[in-house]
Nucleic acid binder design. Structure first.
Lengths: 193, 193
DNA sequence: ACCACAGTGGACCGGGCGGTCCAGAAAGCC
DNA sequence: GGCTTTCTGGACCGCCCGGTCCACTGTGGT
C-alpha cells in the first residue's frame, strides 16, 4: 500500500528517466521496453509503481514535463511589470523552444496517450496557468498606465497562448522559429501601440 | 503499370473513404484494417494502389485533406480586399473548426505517420500557401491605404498562421474555440489600428 | 478466342508491445 | 529471528496490425 523511501526513489527514477528520454530524441513511439531499458528497471517495477500501465506512467511524465514548461520561463513570466521584462520573457520562450527544436516532450506524450480525460486535464491546467500569468502581466501594465485601457487582458492573453502554441507547432514541423517570433513580436507590438 | 478507369476509381474510393473516416471520429489509431472495412476493399487492393503501404496511403490522404483546408476558406481567403472580407474570412475559419470540433483529420494523420520528410512537406506546403494568401491580403489593404504602412505583411501573416494553428490546437484539446477567436480578433484589431 | 496484365479477395505470417505472473531478494516491524 | 510487506527481475502470453502471397476474376487489346 505505502511506498518506502527506496520505492519512491525508483518511481521517481522511472519518471525522470522517461522524461529525459523524451527530451533527447523524438522517437515517434516510446515503448515501455524503452523506458525499462533506459531507467534500468524491469517490467515488474513499472507495473508495480504504475498499476494502470502505460497511461498512468505517461500521465505522470506529462505532469512532470508540464511543470518544467512554466519553470523554464521563470522568473520572467511571474513578473511582467515592465517592457524590459516582457522582452526578456519573449526571449526566454524563443530560446527554450529553439533549443528544444523538433522534440516536444509534451507533444510526443500527448500523441501517444491519445485524448483521454486525464491528458486533456494536464494540458488545460498548464495552459490555464500560463494564460493566467500573461493576463496578470497585462493587467499590471494597464494599471501602471503602460498599456492602453482598450486592451482586453483576458482575450489578449488567450491570443498569446494560441500564438505560442501555434508557433511551437510550426517549429516542430519545420524547424524554424520564425512563426513563434512573429507571433510574439506582433502581439507585443499590439500591446505597446 | 498503368491504372484503368476502374482502378483509379478504387484508389480514389480508398482515399476518400479514409478521409471521411478520419473526419467522422477521432480514433487515436487508424489501422489499415479499419480503412479496408470502411471502403469495402481488401488488403490486396490497398497494397496494390499504395505499394509503400501505410505511409504512402496516409500521405495521399493528408494531401487530400490539406486541399480541403484552404478550399473551405474560399472564396474569402482569396480576396481579402476589404474589412468586410476579412471578417467573413474570420467567421468561416471559426465556423469550419468549430464544426470539426475535436477531430482534426490532419492532426490525427500526422501523429501517426510521424515526422517523415513527406509529412513535413505536406504541412509546410499547406502552411506556405495559407500564409501567402494572408500576406497578399495585407499587402492589398496596405496599397488601398486601409492598413498603416508600419505593418510588416510577412511577419503579420506568420502571426496569423501561428495564431490559427495554436487556436485550433487548443480547440482540439479543450473543445472551446475561445483561443482561436481571441487570436484572430486580436490580430485583426492590430491590423485595423 | 486468346492472352497479358490490372483488379480483387483473403488466408497467413512475424514482430512488436502492453500486460500478467510468479519466484526470489530486500527491508521494515515486533 | 521470524513474519509480513514491499521491491525486483524476467519469462511468458496474446493480441494487434502492417505487410506478404497467391489464387482467382475481370477487362481490354489484337
Amino acid at each position: 500500500m505505502g511506498l518506502t523511501a527506496k520505492g519512491r526513489a525508483t518511481r521517481q527514477r522511472i519518471i525522470e528517466g522517461a522524461a529525459a528520454y523524451l527530451r533527447s530524441d523524438g522517437p515517434a513511439g516510446v515503448t515501455l521496453d524503452d523506458i525499462r531499458a533506459i531507467t534500468g528497471t524491469s517490467k515488474g517495477q513499472i507495473f508495480h509503481y504504475f498499476p494502470d500501465g502505460k497511461e498512468e506512467l505517461f500521465l505522470a511524465v506529462a505532469r512532470h514535463e508540464a511543470g518544467r514548461v512554466l519553470d523554464d520561463q521563470q522568473p520572467h513570466l511571474g513578473a511582467l511589470t515592465s517592457w524590459a521584462a516582457w522582452d526578456r520573457w519573449r526571449d526566454s520562450v524563443v530560446a527554450r523552444y529553439r533549443t528544444q527544436g523538433r522534440n516536444c516532450p509534451l507533444g510526443a506524450l500527448m500523441s501517444q496517450v491519445g485524448s483521454t480525460p486525464g491528458a486533456a486535464e494536464v494540458i488545460s491546467t498548464l495552459l490555464n496557468r500560463w494564460q493566467f500569468h500573461v493576463r496578470e502581466g497585462i493587467e499590471e501594465m494597464q494599471e501602471a498606465g503602460l498599456v492602453r485601457p482598450g486592451v482586453d487582458p483576458e482575450k489578449t492573453a488567450a491570443a498569446f497562448i494560441a500564438g505560442i502554441q501555434g508557433g511551437v507547432q510550426v517549429l516542430r514541423s519545420s524547424g524554424s522559429s520564425t512563426h513563434l517570433e512573429a507571433s510574439l513580436d506582433t502581439l507585443l507590438d499590439y500591446l505597446k501601440a
